[in-house]
Amino acid sequence: MTRRERNWLLVTPAAAWFVVMLVLPLSVIFVFSFGERGPAGGYVPAFTFEQYANLPARFTAFKNTMILAPLGTIAAMLIAYPLAYQLAVRTDPKWKIILLVLVIVPFWTSILIRSYAWIFILGGSGLPALLEMVGIEGVRLIYTPFAVLIGIVYGYLPLMVFPIYVSLDRLDKRLLEASADLGARPFSTFLQVTLPLSIPGVATGCMLVFILLMGEFLIPALLGGGKVFFVGNALVDLFLQSRNWAFGSAVAFTLIVIMLVTVTVYMRLIARLHSGRQDISIM
């Protein structure tokens, strides 16, 4: 076997995966998006732009997603960073593993069960009842966009914590000493050294969470009470309820295009922020 043949052999599984799991479904969606809905649902081949023309009917779903996904990403980042920082920089190494495991533990339980816990916590006899005790009355939390935001941040926090943790943990602690030695106070050191050097982790975490949030449907369905409608929910309805595969494909394809554009712009921005640095990898 020549080297070239061996290389092909090594690449084949990845290529097959890429074709079967990515290219094929995307092609199907693309083709379907120009079709029509059958009389009893499903898909009838056609070539029409009707489905794309109908996109404004899901404008609110796109709007909600495009507002809450970035907002959720930023909120998760703001909470994850101090947590990751504490774990990576301040924690005694012998506790690190235990604390890291604690961060993942929630992942061992289905998101469904965890969201149910939140339904109870945010429901009338949960947090609002506690707030009432301290005199804050009439707070409605469950089935609001805020509840969805909480669910999102809670559900995706580990995905954000880990990349940031890794970038902070990998950070050469002597750089922090060097900064202090050169006269920078701790907060200046954080701003000038720690933060810039952890940007790759932050970028990776944000990317992961953002992409997943763009397709999220379970948390809005459970914690938004059906009133916070994401593109993901629109897709579930289109494919499983009204069985309008053509329109569903158009919505899905539009979502993918929006995602690709956003992610590309984002990566460009991050790359510019770190012009020329080779040790930054986003994906």
């Binding site: 050469d172 002597r174 000493e177 060097a178 030695d181 810039p196 050097l197 640095r277 040790d279």
Partner: peptide, 13 residues
């Protein structure tokens, strides 16, 4: 006081 570190500890960014 300033220090020159063993592996220099230059800021990579």
């Amino acid at each position: 006081v300033n220090m020159v570190f063993q592996s220099y500890a230059l800021f990579p960014h």
